Simulated scan of single mutants.
Amino acid sequence: MKIQQIFANNTVQVLKDDENVLGLAVAGSWLTNEIDEFSDLDLVLVTREKIGGHKDKMVEYAKRLPYFLSGFTGEHVGEPRVLICLYDQPLLHVDLKFVTLEEFRHRIETPILLLDKEGQLQRVLEETEPHFPYPDYQWIEDRFWTWIHYALLKIGRGELIEAFDFFGFLRMVVFGPLLHIKNGNLPRGVRKVETQLPIEDFEQLKETLPTYSRTSLLNSLEHSVVLYRQLRKELFATEVVWHSEAEGKVM
């Protein structure tokens, strides 16, 4: 049995008699049987009383599980209801998401239930559908050419590290999601692009990886524009307004 499964089973035993706990579910790579020694564990704890967003209460629950080392809330990923934890023996990354039953109705995937004391979680899953957030193509087009101009300014000024970091942002927000969508995957940033994209698409994405030099940064920026134009043409609906004048000026 994998360490993530052992931890999940132990969590059920610790929390099953808590009157405030309605149930426990697991999400993430568990759902696709892709857990390996490098996987974290995504747990969803459903409670009567609202716990999510109250750090002290979240940490109190997390510390009830054996070998807690540290934990911090997930505002940096837009989710203050998640406590990102590190446990020991063995060392394991665990994301604990705290939701009420009503909040459990709104989800991006359908988790597997590990504990459902009153059958309420199962009823919620039967009554609702998951909705994974997809990028807004107009939102991307409205910003893309200003972003390219921003990168040019940084390269021109010699702020190469800032320009270098900018490419990571583009891959996470634009290229990763769009390439995943092109290939029928969920737009999870650049997650598992090494295994979920065909060679041709992955090679194009790699062209947006610069080294620390002005020439390399400019080459990667040119490749980024080529890739964006290809994806825009293939994916964007006709109602998306292209900013052709801004595009021309920036180029």
Rank of each mutant, 00 (worst) to 15 (best):
M1A: 11
I3E: 12
Q4K: 02
A8V: 01
N10P: 02
L15Y: 03
N33I: 06
E34I: 09
E37G: 10
L41N: 04
L45P: 01
R48G: 05
K50M: 06
G53E: 01
K63P: 01
R64K: 15
F68H: 07
G71K: 08
G71E: 02
G71C: 07
F72C: 12
E75I: 07
H76V: 11
V77Q: 05
R81A: 12
P90D: 03
L91Q: 12
V94D: 00
V99K: 12
F104N: 00
F104G: 00
I108M: 15
E109W: 03
P111T: 05
R123C: 04
L125R: 02
T128H: 05
P135M: 14
P135D: 10
D136S: 11
Q138W: 00
R143M: 11
R143A: 13
W145I: 02
H149W: 15
Y150G: 08
G158I: 06
I161S: 11
M172V: 10
V173A: 14
V174G: 02
G176F: 04
V193G: 06
D201G: 01
E203T: 12
T208H: 05
T208C: 10
L209Q: 15
T211R: 14
L217S: 07
L218F: 09
L221H: 03
H223G: 10
R229Q: 13
Q230F: 07
R232P: 03
K233R: 15
T238H: 11
V240P: 01
E247K: 06
V250Y: 03
